[in-house]
Design a protein around this nucleic acid. Sequence first.
DNA 1: ACGGTGACTAACC
DNA 2: CGGTTAGCCACCG
Length: 103
Amino acid sequence: VAPHDEFVERVLAVVDDIPPGRVMTYGDVAAAIGSRAARGVGRVMARYGSAVPWWRVVRASGEPAAGHEDRAAGLLADEGAPVRRSGARWRVDLRAARWSPGR
DNA sequence: ACGGTGACTAACC
DNA sequence: CGGTTAGCCACCG
């Protein structure tokens, strides 16, 4: 349900290709479409993220999307993503779960 | 054209 | 490690 927008379409296409249990950072997604607009990706997710597996896009630190940490935690856990708890917060083990398209 | 804003980052304490 | 601080880029009024 994305408008005819180059950037938006590419971002959604990339996120849609992330396999279960794997994740990409906002910066990774941007890089995958030849951009460096990590914040731009976040913006797209905020508006059209509901149509794609948004919980597989995390911050460079491995932490979940701001404001969605609870929902993302359950979904990732179900997929068997390597989640490491640290106090009240948690983060995905990027070394093990980071995914790059076309690999 | 211009400035503010945000599901971000890397660099520094 | 965690907290702060500039950059960054696309988007919107």
